[in-house]
């Protein structure tokens, strides 16, 4: 076997989890390969440490019992919030959050005080995001219009049909101190879970990746 194949066996070799044949193959290889012998040595040391720590954890671990909690939740009919199960309930929130998000990235695209122009999404991601939101209640054109309008207008035009609790949440998120602080305020007061949960995972993952790479926050 070549080094590439041997190295994949090394963690299990040092943990004594290989079959007899594999163990023999690794031993044979190491007789003539100093690099793999060295690799094996350093892995053996780290697995010794890992084993020690694992034993320490096991010794101090408290028993886990979630049965009562599970029963209570099942009896209470508690719903697990998964994107597709809870989507209908989230639509009003998601729509408002999406509007904020859209507004956010248009604001970020305008030159900031430091002269830079931040772009959170690629064009393709924008399209994906906009298409997803489109299925909720806004059309692409409406969202574009929303992104170019004022917060007061969004509030008056878009939120009045929401249920009371959603209206309050959305209103709080959308009441800006002034336009320059709008993005920070909106991001800080919007529950990102609603945004994320309303989107397919591939879109939310991309959003997250881009936030990490390019967020000016």
């Amino acid at each position: 076997m070549r080094c590439k194949e041997i190295e994949k066996l090394l963690p299990d070799f040092v943990s004594n989890k290989l079959s007899r044949t594999e163990t023999q193959a690794v031993r044979e290889h190491m007789k003539t390969c100093a690099r793999c012998r060295e690799e094996q040595e350093s892995l053996r040391n780290i697995f010794l440490l890992l084993d020690n720590v694992k034993n320490l954890e096991s010794a101090s671990a408290k028993p886990v019992n979630v049965l009562a909690g599970v029963r209570t939740r099942i009896n209470a009919g508690r719903k697990i919030r998964t994107p597709w199960v809870s989507l209908p309930r989230l639509v009003p929130y998601a729509t408002v959050s999406a509007a904020i998000l859209i507004l956010g990235f248009f604001l970020l695209r305008t030159p900031q005080p430091d002269g830079k122009e931040y772009q959170i999404f690629t064009e393709q991601e924008e399209r994906m995001l906009l298409q997803e939101i489109d299925t909720d209640s806004f059309t692409f054109e409406e969202l574009l219009a929303l992104s170019q309008t004022s917060f007061e207008e969004i509030t008056s035009n878009s939120l009045l049909d929401l249920p009371d609790d959603a209206f309050i949440t959305a209103s709080e998120a959308l009441t800006p101190i002034n336009e320059n602080d709008a993005l920070t305020y909106a991001l800080a007061t919007t529950d990102p879970e609603d945004v994320l949960e309303s989107l397919p995972s591939e879109v939310s993952e991309k959003i997250l990746e881009n936030f990490e790479k390019q967020s000016p926050l």
């Binding site: 101090s60 408290k62 991001l187 800080a188 919007t190 990102p192 879970e193 994320l196 939310s204 993952e205 959003i207 997250l208 936030f211 990490e212 967020s215 926050l217």
Partner: peptide, 22 residues
């Protein structure tokens, strides 16, 4: 973890120093 990460990014929470609670 993704939600926590996003929340951290948006709210400036520092979870990097979080240690197990036990």
């Amino acid at each position: 973890l993704r939600k926590r990460k996003l929340r951290q990014l948006l709210s400036f929470d520092d979870l990097s120093m979080e240690v197990p609670s036990d």
